[in-house]
């Protein structure tokens, strides 16, 4: 059996989900964003939610998610996605509404919107990409930037006295009674990708079942911001990010 015989529709195991269109994604090689986009597209396709889903993409590298996933999208001002999503979900209660936010968006400028949407228990899913850096604007320090971590605005490494502590926002969100599911995942290897997909699927199901707010934090890489190769970024993440942002379900009611 040679290769050309194996490559046949009958033998198909995996292909790109159609919801993820053919527009090449602008993300840097190896970026976790692309993997998470793919998982969301797979889930929407498998559950046939394309006609019910509205995504909210705030400012950040992933604002252009709306060019890659073929669902209805709203672009939100930096930090305001949870409020925009609240407006949508309150007016269209039977739709699947999710936000896709970076750490700067969710835990810096949008902290209030994030906390209050969760506190109200909005039936939305918040996909939170935590790569401890502002990627789109060229690698600046973010609220989740680790101590001593070098960025373009902490060139000598994050200094606690100067810049305060890394903000573990997900630990705070667990305490808000409006959140029903709070988990930390990572797409750094095959097992991680599988678990992350299950977590996003669960978040979307919670939203449809109106169980409250689901937070899916994906501890992610930013190879250009971290100035490492994609593989080295994964390894650095495991060694440095995972201790600060432990993977696993923090809440699941």
């Amino acid at each position: 059996m040679n290769i050309t015989e194996i490559i046949h529709p009958a033998n198909l195991v995996y292909k790109k989900p159609d919801v993820l269109n053919d527009t090449p994604m602008h993300y840097c090689p190896g970026c976790s964003h692309g993997v998470v986009h793919k998982l969301i597209a797979e889930i929407i396709e498998e559950n046939n939610w394309q006609e019910k889903t509205i995504g909210v993409a705030p400012v950040g590298c992933s604002v252009f998610a709306y060019n890659y996933l073929d669902i209805d999208w709203q672009q939100a001002a930096h930090g305001r996605a949870p409020a925009v999503a609240t407006g949508i979900k309150r007016l269209l209660p039977d739709r699947l509404v999710f936000t896709y936010q970076g750490d700067g968006d969710l835990a810096a400028i949008g902290t209030a919107e994030t906390i209050h949407a969760c506190n109200r228990g909005e039936n939305i899913t918040i996909i939170f990409i935590n790569n401890a850096i502002y990627g789109m604007t060229g690698g600046q320090m973010a609220p989740t930037t680790l101590e001593n971590m070098k960025t373009s605005t902490s060139p000598a490494g994050r200094n606690i006295e100067l810049n305060g502590y890394p903000l573990n926002i997900t630990d705070l969100l667990v305490k808000l009674r409006g959140t029903c599911y709070v988990t930390r995942q990572s797409v750094y290897n095959v097992a991680g990708v599988r678990k992350a997909k299950k977590a996003i699927q669960k978040g979307f199901e919670n939203s449809m079942a109106k169980k409250g707010t689901s937070i899916i934090e994906i501890v992610s890489t930013c190879s250009s911001g971290w100035k490492l190769t994609p593989d080295a970024s994964n390894k650095w993440m495991v060694a440095n990010m995972f201790p600060a942002y432990e993977l696993g379900d923090l809440k699941d009611i």
């Binding site: 407006g87 007016l91 919107e113």
Partner: peptide, 9 residues
């Protein structure tokens, strides 16, 4: 921004 979300629907 809630108004934005609702209006866009």
């Amino acid at each position: 921004n809630m108004v934005y979300g609702a209006s866009a629907c």
